[in-house]
């Protein structure tokens, strides 16, 4: 079971409270986790990754296990603690504005 924490705006948009829990088949990577997230919550398509290029939106970051994984390749394996569900995969909105 993969645990994902959404930023507040996307929790509201997807009508979820707390963490999202996902069953992910195969390798646990950014791509497979985000694919599963968007399959479960189609309204999040385009809100985290560009529809066409699947690139991370510029003002979002991916954190896990006290690391910034935003610039890791999308098919790189995520840490074991994410794969086992011990730690959540964090999708974080950049702090910007006054």
């Amino acid at each position: 079971m993969i645990r994902v924490v959404l930023p507040a705006h996307l929790k509201m948009h997807a009508s979820v409270n707390g963490e999202v829990r996902l069953d992910v088949e195969g390798a646990i990577t950014q791509r497979s986790v985000l694919d599963a997230l968007e399959d479960s919550y189609p309204m999040l398509r385009g809100a985290i990754r560009d529809h066409a290029t699947k690139r991370r939106r510029p003002f979002l970051r991916f954190f896990a296990c006290q690391q910034d994984l935003s610039h890791e390749p999308p098919d790189a394996p995520l840490p074991d603690a994410i794969a086992t569900g011990a730690q959540p995969f964090l999708i974080v909105g950049a702090i910007a504005g006054g």
């Binding site: 705006h9 948009h13 385009g46 939106r57 003002f59 909105g93």
Partner: peptide, 8 residues
């Protein structure tokens, strides 16, 4: 819309 999360 949102500068962070795009268009809905």
């Amino acid at each position: 819309s949102s500068g962070w999360f795009g268009q809905q």
